[in-house]
C-alpha cells in the first residue's frame, strides 16, 4: 500500500518542513534521497489521495477567527445526506460528519463552524432555517487542551 521510500518521506512531512530555500532537498539529505525523488514521492502520495493537503496549517484563533463552535444537528437518518451536503456548502463550516451513535440519542450531524467576526448564533439560525432542522446544540470551545497533528510514521 505504501512503500518504504514513501514512509521515509511521509515521516518528514508529517511534521514541519524547514524554512529554507530548498526544503525538499533538505528532506532528501535527511533520508538519503534526491530532491527530485522527494518531490515526485510527495506528488504521488497526493495523487493517490493519501495526502489530503500539503501546506500551511494555521492556528485559526490567532489568524483572526475568534468564533469557533461545534454545532450538532438532530437530523433523521433519511435526511442526513441532504442536510450534510447543504452544511458542506457553507464557507464558515470547515468540517461536517454524520456520526453514530447519535449524541443524546438524536444528534447525528456534526459540524465545525469558524467565524472571523459576528455571532455564531445568527449564522446557525439561518443555516437551521435552510436545512429545516431546528433542534441543534451549539458547543463552544471554552478551552483548548490539545491541538496537534497525528504522528503516523
Amino acid at each position: 500500500m505504501i512503500t518504504e521510500e514513501e514512509i521515509a518521506v511521509a515521516s518528514c512531512i508529517q511534521e514541519d518542513i524547514s524554512l529554507e530555500r530548498r526544503p525538499f532537498a533538505a528532506i532528501g539529505v535527511r533520508i538519503g534521497m534526491e530532491e527530485g525523488d522527494v518531490i515526485d514521492t510527495i506528488n504521488g502520495l497526493r495523487e493517490r489521495g493519501i495526502i489530503r493537503k500539503f501546506g500551511a496549517i494555521v492556528r485559526h484563533r490567532k489568524a483572526g477567527y475568534s468564533e469557533n463552535a461545534m454545532i450538532l444537528w438532530a437530523v433523521p437518518e433519511e435526511d442526513l445526506e441532504k442536510a450534510g451536503r447543504s452544511l458542506a456548502s457553507y464557507r464558515e463550516i470547515s468540517h461536517c460528519y454524520g456520526r453514530t451513535p447519535p449524541f443524546e440519542g438524536k444528534y447525528t450531524l456534526f459540524s465545525m463552524l469558524h467565524l472571523a467576526k459576528g455571532e455564531a448564533e445568527e449564522l446557525v439560525r439561518k443555516i437551521s432555517e435552510t436545512i429545516a432542522i431546528n433542534d441543534y446544540l451549539i458547543l463552544r470551545s471554552e478551552e483548548e487542551y490539545k491541538k496537534t497533528s497525528m504522528g503516523y510514521f
Partner: peptide, 24 residues
C-alpha cells in the same frame, strides 16, 4: 510562524487511507 499564526507547514494525511481508525 514566530507569531504562532502558522502552526506548521507540511502534509495532512487521510487517516483512513493509512489504515487507521478515528473517532470523536
Amino acid at each position: 510562524k514566530d507569531e504562532g499564526i502558522i502552526r506548521r507547514i507540511g502534509a495532512v494525511f487521510v487517516t483512513k487511507k493509512l489504515g487507521y481508525a478515528s473517532t470523536l
